[in-house]
């Protein structure tokens, strides 16, 4: 049987739920051999011809999906700020702050004048900070936000009018202006944070498996998106960690220094998988890192502190001293190999 016919057969068995472990191993090998384009026709024909696959969604699931679709499409126009990584570090920071200030000014202007600007009523302001950059910003209500590399913040143009609601992904330190009538809500992919007036650090990259919020002062209500019954009140020097696969929240004591080290330009790794260390370095320094060494090493736990005066070259030296690795720099990419 050619591998094409074989794929047809194996996918059919997989969907019929009659595939044997041996056949699944074959399927795995073929799936890994073909790219998405190559697998397209086999799956497309199953999709086109099978209208009655089992396990349709329950009513509850259906309502949930429809609710989220409607919510997502009703969000207004988004202003996107493109950021280019190639700029030198200083220049790009200045540019980031300049653009943010400009937008902040625009936003304040609109906030004070928007009674007649119905056109802009439903639109949004989006702020994004590229890798290798950081930025500080003041929201219309006086809340200070410090955004770490690779983060994005969005809020409605009428922010502060009836509510204070922001969508957020990435890492940021929030110093929220107190306003008992309008709680400040940070909405992320996995958890929601509701506060009145506090300081806290939020770590919630969409692409990362770790989602956590560390509270420095005040009090905060955290709730899980996936598991809405799961709500917690958090006190200072505690952090909430969200398990993204179950949506469960848990609380841990912390002295907050580790979580807020990035504000002083440091990175602190505490028994962190090498894989995630490399990801954070890419974000922080705005570089590409390609790992070609031993795959098992990516699971190794790394601890260490990288000071604010260290550049990416210093960090590569630290890593290659610590591990049996070499690095070279080619085509804008650091390559780590044995």
């Amino acid at each position: 049987m050619s591998s094409e016919n074989k794929l047809d057969y194996l996918f059919a068995r997989y969907f019929e739920r009659s595939i044997t472990p041996e056949e699944l191993t074959e399927l795995k090998a073929l799936v890994n051999k073909f790219d998405n384009e190559g697998l397209d026709e086999y799956l497309r024909s199953i999709w086109m011809n099978n209208e009655y696959l089992p396990f349709h969604p329950t009513e509850k699931q259906k309502m949930r999906m429809i609710g989220r679709i409607e919510q997502a499409i009703s969000e207004g126009k988004v202003i996107v700020i493109p950021m280019y990584r190639r700029f030198t570090r200083i220049f790009s920071r200045v540019a980031a702050i300049f653009i943010l200030a400009l937008l902040g000014g625009t936003c304040l202007y609109l906030y004070h004048n928007n009674q007649n600007l119905s056109l802009y009523r439903n639109s949004e302001i989006a702020l994004s900070v590229g890798n290798g950059q950081e930025a500080s910003f003041t929201l219309p209500d006086g809340t200070q936000v410090r955004l770490n590399s690779g983060s994005a913040l969005r809020y409605a143009n009428n922010f502060g009018e009836n509510n204070r609601y922001v969508d957020f992904s990435g890492e940021a330190f929030f110093d929220v202006k107190k306003d008992e009538d309008r709680p400040f809500v940070v909405n992320t992919k996995h958890i929601n944070i509701e506060v009145l007036g506090t300081t806290f650090n939020m770590y919630a990259y969409d692409s990362d498996e770790l989602v956590e919020m560390t509270l420095l002062t005040g009090s905060v209500k955290a709730s899980s998106k996936k598991n809405p019954e799961c709500q917690l009140l958090v006190k200072p020097n505690e952090k909430v960690i969200c398990d993204i696969s179950t949506g469960k929240l848990s609380v841990e004591q912390t002295n907050t220094q580790y979580e807020t080290a990035w504000i002083n330009g440091e990175i602190v790794f505490k028994s962190e998988r090498l894989n995630s260390v490399l990801l954070k370095l890419e974000r922080k320094y705005g570089v590409h890192i390609r790992y070609e060494g031993n795959a098992a090493l990516l699971d190794d736990r790394f601890s260490g502190r990288i000071g604010k005066d260290n550049n990416i070259g210093d960090v590569m030296k630290i890593l290659t001293n610590h591990y049996p690795l070499k690095y070279k720099y080619k085509n804008d990419t650091f390559i780590l190999s044995n």
Partner: peptide, 9 residues
């Protein structure tokens, strides 16, 4: 929606 869900599921 139900068909697509069932397929992906």
């Amino acid at each position: 929606l139900p068909q697509l869900y069932a397929f992906i599921y």
